[in-house]
């Protein structure tokens, strides 16, 4: 039985612009669900004969199998009217939903996985940054993350040192805030909303809210799909499949402070769907 804490969280299950009126079958935490768009009225998610609670936010439809004790998180920066909101499109990955989130929190892989775009082998060093679990909102935050990037965004002219912040507001969601080349006082917002289908299969729904008046929407979508698909080839080849929460199993370094905090936070809350607790 999936830990209740995980059932009580909100998860993305569809793009509002593409919901099927006939209904589309899917899985959530191993349980069968059906997602239906509606001509009039709200979309529905059904499971096991009952209608689940739904929320429409960030261009996606969200639902829960349980009884969340808080509303779905917000991203206030994303509401700015001048931003371009981008539905990147779902990608299925044969990995644990927790591994998908953890990869998104990592910068040390940029020179090797996103070579000449988000990182370069000539600049691999990850300098000290700050990580905390903010108890007031119960979220994991990493700040003052810096990395040299040959092509940080579609809107970037050349190589720049990018500043990042990472935020984990829910067990399978992560948001990153990064230097916005056209508006240096603002952050570009890139989010990964992960739908856990089973413990080793997930649907990833990336989403962005950017300041970019120049690039065509399709180019923005493709840039983010390119980055995510580069990660996918890593995610499908990590062993063990389930994220080890036992610290003895894998060897982190100081560059991995965010992932260490994320794993600690998952364990604390019993968010263990897609995790393994002891070495098997």
């Amino acid at each position: 039985m999936t830990a209740q804490a995980m059932r009580d969280a909100w998860y993305p299950v569809g793009l509002l612009s593409q919901l099927s009126f006939e209904g589309k079958d899917s899985l959530l935490l191993g349980q069968k669900i059906t997602i239906c768009g509606a001509e009039t009225g709200a979309p529905r998610v059904e499971s096991d004969g009952r209608n689940l609670p739904v929320v429409e936010r960030f261009g996606h439809l969200w639902t829960t199998l349980g009884a969340p004790n808080k509303d779905l998180f917000t991203i206030p920066e994303a509401d700015h009217p001048d931003r371009t909101r981008v539905d990147v499109g779902v990608v299925r990955v044969k990995c644990s939903p927790l591994r998908a989130v953890e990869n998104f929190l990592d910068v040390a892989h940029f020179p090797f996985v996103h070579t000449d775009i988000l990182g370069a082998e000539s600049h691999p060093e990850v300098s000290e940054y700050k990580v905390e679990i903010r108890d007031d909102v119960d979220e994991v935050w990493a700040t003052k993350v810096e990395f040299f990037q040959p092509q940080a965004a579609k809107s970037a002219g050349g190589g720049i040192t990018t500043e990042y912040m990472y935020r984990v507001p829910a067990p399978t969601c992560s948001i990153l805030y990064k230097t916005c080349p056209p508006r240096p006082d603002e952050w570009d917002v890139i989010a990964l909303f992960v739908q856990p289908l089973t413990e080793d299969l997930c649907d990833v729904w990336p989403w962005m809210a950017l300041f970019d008046d120049e690039s065509a929407m399709t180019d923005l979508i493709h840039f983010q799909q390119l980055i995510f698909l580069q990660d996918r080839s890593i995610l499908e080849n990590q062993i063990p499949k389930r994220l080890p929460l036992d610290p003895a199993m894998e060897t982190p370094t100081r560059a991995d402070l965010t992932s260490i905090a994320y794993r600690r936070w998952l364990k604390r809350h019993n968010y263990t769907f897609g995790a393994q607790l002891v070495a098997e």
Binding site: L15, S17, Q18, D87, V88, G89, V90, A216, M217, T218, D219, I221, H222, Q225
Partner: peptide, 10 residues
């Protein structure tokens, strides 16, 4: 010329 194959089915 970029075509929005997915999700846009352009």
């Amino acid at each position: 010329r970029a075509v929005d194959f997915h999700p846009g089915r352009e």
